[in-house]
Write a protein that binds this DNA or RNA. Structure first.
Lengths: 338, 338
DNA sequence: TCGATCAGTTAGAGCGCTCCAACTCTAGAC
DNA sequence: GTCTAGAGTTGGAGCGCTCTAACTGATCGA
């Protein structure tokens, strides 16, 4: 099977020879240049298909000194959030004729760092990092070599662009939604040091204060996982006064919390209402039907890619874009039964 | 910000000049050759770090005629199944010193095909496709140019390797588990034309027959989605005799089915037991607690990568590997209440 | 003292492509 | 008939690296 395969792939030269033209002309045809005669174009494409010719990207990129590709570093392939951001990046990149090469950091800063090295070595034209956990200094250094945009986490004052959601405002929406339904004892299970956790926490606290609810405000520490949500809910159930609503830092934690509440013999949303954050596909599952705060992930990805591409082509600057979240009401919230 | 950046990156030449050695020597140092004197190595690495030199992968790959990278085509970034397979691929590739470049087909054969073209143009050393929907002929053609392994779907008789789960056996396990719990009326909501759907269906039918249950066997057509599971369950609920158990083609469909059953006022597993397939993270969520058939996804990914790498280095052949599934019992199955 | 050996180093020829300047024609203007 | 413009085409010089074969000195045994 392999003998035919190994005989190295045809090159421009081979095509030129068969078509009876120069290498340069074949190159022009391959790049869809308008100044090639119909006749020449036909002969070249015929020869190319006959040989099964495929331009060698290495050689092309080396010679042209650009790759038309964007490196995308995803922190965790397991989280649907990244898939949706990537969809947006993909859409914008495709529209502008750019390729994507993806890499997964697998939640490890070491692997993330290595992936960035590979991107730089491959001379990608630009880089997008999503949910990246690398220290700011490292990103800054990379950003000095090639335009870089961060999605989901802002790095102001560095030469780096960013696209984030207004997490604090999302938290406000969650709390106000519950308030409007009559809830007064609203607890928050937070996301610890994760990306976006801090503004969500302060947003919650600020809104509680503004609504005159600071006395019943209660933050339970978590880490964006299902287990953290479950533990947080357990602590709340054991507490002196049970909250009538829980706002969690993300959907996964919300699912963990709901599970514990229901096992405790309580009914969601009648006894305890729950609001998540992210509006991942998880929240949308009918069986779960989670009320949550939506982030426009596709749009965020698309905006990041567009900003990056504009910068690469000197048609724009790297800035910090903040998107607006929105409330998605499903079945885990309802009027408070006092 | 960009003026410093644009002044093209340092090359081997620059490093050689500063270190006062030849280009070839720098090249040797960069590739960790053992036959370089301590002194030379030091001078070169010093010069390299001073300049911030980073080897240009394009040039390297072009000159060496190999890329040490494997192209991985994922059908759908949104499905956690792919993330786990990728973890396995990653682990094996890393151990052998190979890079990964990922591409998402976004469920579209057109995009999948284009991604393969990019892989070929980039001259990757090998390709792994996961859950690929491309026609066999196309994969065969690609496989003729570069070693290719398919995960999750077998293509016997072609020059392509594959790693799959014994889907029929998994279906057997599901049915026998339910049988052992006393269930006799077991329905199946299938996966239509999706990867693995067919053997799961025939495995179900075969086992039902073997257990003398062919008269109550019932296949409802679906397509691996949550909606399909819901529709299937609706049809079953409207039927003359309600099955006491439902075996769905995957976890997502199971979740859809459970939702409909519960909304119909029935209790899972007391009134209707449900078994899924895949054991995705979804099934493991406490709130869902789905009994399902596990596929060793990480191992499948790792096996695919190892087989591919061995083939690329003429240390092995492409074959068809079939892994064993296993039953994971959670809370959606229990003894039948006749 | 003289090769032989070997560790360490180097020049130079590519790898397959792009890009530029320059070339050849043909057609139109006068 | 000459000149010019422009369309179409081409040779050749790189892009930044690897790889081969050959070179340079020490080192060493005879």
């Amino acid at each position: 099977m392999s003998s035919t395969r190994r005989n190295h792939a045809p090159t421009l030269e081979d095509v030129a020879q068969i078509a009876g033209v120069s290498r340069a002309l074949v190159s022009l045809v391959m790049r869809d240049s308008p100044r090639v005669s119909i006749e020449s174009r036909r002969r070249v494409t015929d020869a190319a298909t006959k040989l099964g010719y495929r331009p060698n990207l290495m050689a092309r990129n080396l010679a042209s000194r650009k790759t038309m590709t964007i490196g995308v570093l995803l922190n965790d392939l397991h989280n649907p959030w990244f898939a949706e951001v990537t969809d947006g990046i993909h859409a914008s990149a495709e529209r502008h004729g750019y390729q994507l090469i993806l890499a997964s950091g697998r939640r490890s800063p070491r692997l993330e760092s290595r992936a960035l090295d590979t991107f730089l070595a491959s001379r990608v034209d630009g880089i997008i990092v999503a949910g990246c956990r690398l220290p700011a200094a490292r990103l800054d250094a990379v950003g000095a070599e090639v335009p870089l945009v961060s999605v989901g986490r802002a790095f102001s004052k560095l030469g780096i662009g960013s696209v984030t959601t207004d997490d604090a405002d999302g938290a406000r929406m969650a709390v106000e939604h519950l308030y409007d339904l009559g809830h007064r004892r609203i607890a928050h299970i937070d996301g610890g040091k994760g990306a976006g956790a801090s503004p969500r926490r302060t947003g919650y606290l600020g809104t509680m204060r503004r609504l005159g609810l600071e006395d019943s405000a209660q933050v339970i520490s978590g880490d964006f996982t299902e287990e953290a949500g479950a533990h947080g809910a357990q602590r709340l159930l054991r507490g002196a006064v049970l909250p009538t609503a829980i706002f969690t830092a993300n959907d996964l934690s919300a699912v963990g919390a709901i599970d514990v509440v229901e096992r405790g013999g309580l009914v969601v949303p009648d006894d305890v209402a729950v609001v998540g954050f992210d509006n991942t596909s998880l929240a949308a599952l009918n069986h779960i039907g989670l009320t949550t705060i939506d982030q426009p992930r596709r749009e965020m990805g698309a905006a990041a890619a567009t900003m990056l591409i504009n910068t690469m082509n000197d048609r724009g600057e790297l800035t910090d874009i903040v998107m607006s979240p929105s409330l998605v009401v499903r079945r885990t919230t309802g009027r408070a039964h006092v």
